[in-house]
Amino acid sequence: MAEPDDSGGRGMSRMATIAAHTALILLSLVFLVPLLWLITSSLKTDAQILRFPPEWIPSPVTLKNYPGGLTFIPFWRQLGNTLLISSLTVLGTLLSCSLVAYGLARVRWRGRNALFGILLGTMMLPFQVTMVPVFVMFARIGWVDTFWPLIVPHFLGSAFYIFLMRQFFLTIPLELTEAARIDGCSEWDIYRRIVLPLSKPVLATVGLFAFMASWNDYLGPLIYLADESRYTLSLGLASFSSQYGSYPGMLMAVTVVITVPIIVIFFFAQRTFIQGITLTGIKG
């Protein structure tokens, strides 16, 4: 931390500092050991994984689970499916939610407060209530076992992200948009040229959350995707786990490969992550 360590240090004796560090280090180990076990297991042969007592540090180290696991399941195909679905999800979410949030925050029209209230109300509704009729609807138009049910709804707004963006748009000074309006800019121009460029932080937060949610989604693909060639990574990994549990090495290798991109993104976007989570907590 960059912040000077005045009050924390003053209040705590040397003993207390040592105790705090000891506790933090032990707890860190508890939280990290599962991930370390995941990585070391992916570097072992199946016989090494099943050995008792377990080898905490694999010897010898083998890398063959990675090419093995990634060809055992149609990994690249599933990665492509997942990336296609999640990138379109992010695009749809950013586009639709920013438009709606602008309409709710910066355009003055009768009914906008009512609409906002209804949107907040829908956040209370559990997914399970609408799950069956939405499935039936998609089944009727022949979209089951396609990506459409996983993508199209995101182009029609999502209450929580609209809420986050609206709150952000409200903080943009009115003078900025009023001046543009007097100069004859249309609402669309103001949205495109003034509000969106000023809203990068909230767009980044929402985009990140939408991406994570889509990358991690299991229930959606489980309901809608049937053919293995259309599986996402989550679905592929779960089915690999249930069908081929006797290949733990490859299973762990695939699990590592699915987890690593998220952790890498986290390290590059740590601030956005933490801010996003705090934002949701404080505004709740």
């Binding site: 990358w215 990994l237 786990s241 699915i258 998220i262 992550f273």
Partner: peptide, 18 residues
Amino acid sequence: FFVPSIVPLVASSVLWIW
């Protein structure tokens, strides 16, 4: 402490079965 909470749900489920 934070990183485990962002491990994809399916990945963390598979890991913990083991």
